[in-house]
Design a protein around this nucleic acid. Structure first.
Lengths: 141, 141
DNA sequence: TTAAGGTAGATGCAAACGCATGGAACTTGA
DNA sequence: TCAAGTTCCATGCGTTTGCATCTACCTTAA
């Protein structure tokens, strides 16, 4: 077992444990965590976002994301309009209602995150952020 | 945005990026990553394992796990037998075929993991493992 | 001993997923 | 300029998922 494999296994385990914890919290309203993730990504990355770009951030297949966006559009949380520059593509953005929903869920969820990670020291938090950022940025190889 | 929230977002993003990378690798045979995860957990945690124990390690609802184990039993990869000490429960273990399959997939996958994490220094790998272990162990609060 | 409450895992069912594929629009090179 | 290849997103379809619920078994306490 190499160091790399131990680190990855430990990361996966932490992810699973925390995701379960967060999922069990009663803050999601009538959204799933995955749906919230889409709203959050749209709010964070700065709309409008392309489908493919959004898909890069969300752990979901392209067809599944396509249909989830469908549903969010139907529910009035996301706006999907054709991209004038590339007529194959779409431009996705939050509606005002979508932004509101994201914020209302995001606030208590952010508190849960803070609480769950409060076992780490500020130095550890910085290290964790730096290391995982390095991993995520190294998208190709 | 607190440090904790930045760290968590970065961790999630790294997880998503790496999972997509691994999923795209052609090493999974006729298993899904989630199915492999079950076999891996059984091999790592030392069988026999209770359903509920297995469920703690796998990011899947209890019913979904129950049915996945069904399928793995049907395919001859997992053995499920009643627990003599608690007749509600079951004892899950790998069959020889299951162990073989896990190893055959695990080997190349482990190499992918090593490669993907090779952007980190040994010190960073140790820090990552230590920090995420701390997070996972703090299961309750 | 037994009734009340809790825990382990299975099952019905609607919703969501991934894979394969489709059509339309962009890009490239001859 | 236009045929071949690529990219973008949507759709058909069988499989898997989560929620709610069920049954069976264990535990506690009166």
């Amino acid at each position: 077992m190499t160091r790399a494999n131990e680190a990855w296994e430990s990361l996966m385990r932490a992810y699973a444990v925390l995701m379960k914890q967060f999922n069990a919290e009663d803050v999601w309203g009538d959204l799933t965590m995955r749906e919230y993730d889409v709203l959050y990504t749209l709010s964070k990355c700065g709309s409008p976002l392309r489908m493919s770009e959004l898909n890069r951030h969300v752990l979901l297949s392209q067809p599944a994301l396509s249909r989830m966006v469908d549903r969010l559009v139907d529910r009035g949380l996301v706006d999907r309009c054709p991209d004038p520059g590339d007529r194959r593509g779409v431009r996705l953005s939050l509606t005002p209602a979508g932004r509101k929903t994201q914020q209302e869920i995001g606030r208590p969820h952010a508190r849960s995150v803070t609480r769950a990670l409060s076992v780490l020291t500020p130095e550890e938090l910085d290290q964790l952020a730096a290391i995982t950022r390095k991993l995520a940025e190294n998208e190709e190889r």
